[in-house]
Every structure is written in structure tokens, then in C-alpha cells.
Amino acid sequence: MTSPDVVARGLTLRYGRTTALDDVTFTLAGGRIYGLLGRNGAGKTSLLSLLAGFRRPSGGRLTVAGAEPFEDPQVTEQVALVRDPGPLYDMWRVSEVLDFAARMRPRWDAACAERLVERFEVPLRRRVMTLSHGKKSALSITVGLAARAPITAFDEAYLGLDAPSRYAFYDELLADYATHPRTIIISTHLIEEVASLFEEVLILHRGRLLLHEDSDTLRSRGAAVTGPAAAVDRFVDGLTALGERRLGPTKSVTVYGELDGERTRRARAAGLDIDPVPLQDLFVHLTEDDARAAAATGGAS
């Protein structure tokens, strides 16, 4: 089963006077795990709700294998959006929720669902309204994974889980992705835990697409230059600086951009330390200040 491509061209969404998404353009090749990063209100949920056919865009186009999601059953039955915790019938038992999803999702894998509720310790006979927030999230995740939809998106769906359950989720996600490859989009702000799962990263900031990059490439673009203040200033002159910190005579500047071998050697020769920047820090720096972010990434695409 190959997953269809998701293509956005000039995608815009407005709620009254607020612009949730502004001229977003990207192509997601099918079958990869994508990280959708952004601060609260950046537009992640808006983007995913358009993908799931919850509403129509205000402008531009979003297509899945060439078709727009809204009210198109060919598309909506291929997209599963898992929210935290999402719509669940309070009065129903867990087993009834799973039966419901089984009837509605053509690729439903009952054995997978059974295994997952056991792993997450969600009791089958309990009614949804008696479950804790974490267990409800686990149930939503179970439904999302067992549905085996060719495009599965998790909108901060696992934030309600405790740490052991989160790790169980990552393991199950990877295992399922290995046996049933499909497009998976994970929207989050718990970045460091999941960063290694992403093949590509998209960063939304105030409704605009800040960047869309291969994970490894993005990681290699950040560097922290630390040393005596004057030397650091000389070295980073001309580079895009995302942020800086001072401690007495020492200064540390986070730069964005490729630092080739030659530059790195010069830095070391000048007594400067060049350290890598974790994805989470890079994300924080890039979304801190509009002007810097725009300069760093050459404006939104």
C-alpha cells in the first residue's frame, strides 16, 4: 500500500479576522514520518483539521492524491486525525468505541487494537467517562493506529500520557510503521523525545511555513559558537545569529546556516568551541522572533 502525496499550494485559513494559516505551500511525499512543529496557535491544528476534512480552506488548495479532503469520501476514509483526547462517547464502553471504529474504518486491524489497549492498560469494560485523561488519550491513539489509515496524524495526541506510556506509544508507532508503512504526521511541542522519529520536519510560525527540511539537514544547520566575546563576534560576523548568551568575558552565539569544514577549523584554531544545537533549541530560537526567523529561513515559502 503506497500512501498518497499531500500537496498544499498557497493554503490559507481564516476564522473571522484571525488568519490561522497564511499562504502555506509544501509537498509531503507519501510513506514518511513528518514532524509538524510550532508554538501554540501557530496553525498546526488548523492545518491538520483541513487535512481531515473538518472544514474548507479560505484560500489556496490542499489535496491528497489530487483530491480535496472536504466531503470527499475517497480522501476522508484515508485520513485519520488523532486528537487529545478527541470525540469519544462518554457513555460507551471502551469495547464499543473500538467496535464503532471497526465499522467505520475499512482497514481496521482488530488484533492490533486489542494488543494496544492491553499495552496501554485501558480496560475494555469501562465506560469512557470513567477513564482518566491519560487513558482517554491512549484510547484515541489506539483507534488512530489500528485504523491503519494511509495518512495518520497525531495532533499532540500523546501529551496526556505518562512517560512510560509515551515510550510505549513511540515503540508501537515505529513497529506499526515498519510493518505497514504509511504517512505519519506528528504535531508536537515535546520535541526532543520524538525528534529522532522524524524523517522530515515542518515548522509553522504564526500561520506561515517557516521551513520544511530533512531532519538531519536541519540539525546540521544549527551551531553554538562559544568563546571569548570579541573572537566570537569576529567569527559570526556575516552569519545568521539566532540568539546569544553572555557570562562575563565568554559569549555563546547560536548561528543558523551551514558551517563547512574550513570554517569549523578556523573557529577551533581561534580557540572557539563549535557545538551542535539540539532540534528543540533550534526550534525555540527560530520561533522566538519574527525578524530573525524570517532572516534565517529566507522568509516563508
Partner: peptide, 8 residues
Amino acid sequence: AFYRINPA
């Protein structure tokens, strides 16, 4: 699976 990273 062992290292919890992307297969790609």
C-alpha cells in the same frame, strides 16, 4: 525499533 529512531 531498538534505538527508537526513524528507519529511513
